[in-house]
């Protein structure tokens, strides 16, 4: 994962709540065994069926930040949803509430989930709709999101572990393996009734 400290760019406003991962990347794309190339599948049903869908509008081309309504990324655990967003060019998603699994998945790939209040999210959405060229800054180190030209700014929280990992671009498997002695010690104390799978 590449370190991510600061994101500066324009945003695309997705004024919908309850955007589930089936919409972000429909199931037909999930047959692929690769981790790349999912950008063309991003919101493919909405992009195909609605010419006015935000990602079809040229004024929002090149946006690095997606601003959505509450409950973004609910539903299926498919990490392909995150891969589709990053492959398309998004570096952060702003929403008042994320599905837990989506949020975890996002931080593993360096897509920053920015949780804001409903009021701030709504204000930012309207500001971006009004001015697609509005520049937004996300400071991962300080936990701030702002659109200085319209006077909008807000803090957002990330747990310390996730922030550190994003800032340093760390492989979290490597971080867990630092505790391999503790893992081995734990394994010696597991109850004997716990199942293990036998070869057929």
């Amino acid at each position: 994962m590449q370190p991510v400290t600061r994101i500066v760019g324009t945003a695309a406003p997705l004024d919908r709540s309850d955007v589930d991962t089936d919409q972000i990347i429909p199931a037909s794309w999930l047959k692929r065994v690769e981790r790349t190339g999912f950008g063309i599948g991003l919101f493919s049903a909405w992009r195909e069926n609605d010419p006015d869908f935000v990602l079809n509008r040229p004024e929002f081309g090149g946006a690095k930040i997606l601003i959505a309504g509450p409950n973004f990324g609910i539903g299926s655990s498919r990490e392909h949803a995150v891969w589709a967003l990053t492959d398309f060019g998004f570096e952060a998603v702003v929403s008042p509430r994320f599905g837990d699994i989506f949020r975890n998945n996002a931080t593993k790939t360096g897509l920053v989930p920015v949780v804001v209040s409903e009021e701030f999210g709504e204000a930012l959405l309207r500001a971006v709709e009004h001015d697609p060229t509005l520049e937004i800054m996300i400071d991962v180190a300080e936990g701030w999101i702002s659109a200085p030209s319209v006077g909008l700014e807000s803090e957002f929280t990330l747990d310390e572990f996730t922030r550190h990992r994003l800032l340093e671009g760390l492989d979290d498997i490597g971080l867990s393996l630092r505790h391999v002695d503790k893992i081995s010690a734990y394994e010696t104390g597991r109850p004997a009734w716990m199942p293990s799978v036998d070869p057929d």
Binding site: S77, V82, D172, S176, I183, E187
Partner: peptide
């Protein structure tokens, strides 16, 4: 609980998962 593919890899490699307590 359900997990994404990065976490699948994490469990495969470590049999553990770092998690925020719900």
């Amino acid at each position: 609980f359900g997990i994404g593919t990065s976490e699948v890899e994490h469990v495969m490699a470590t049999q553990c998962l770092p998690q925020i307590r719900p």
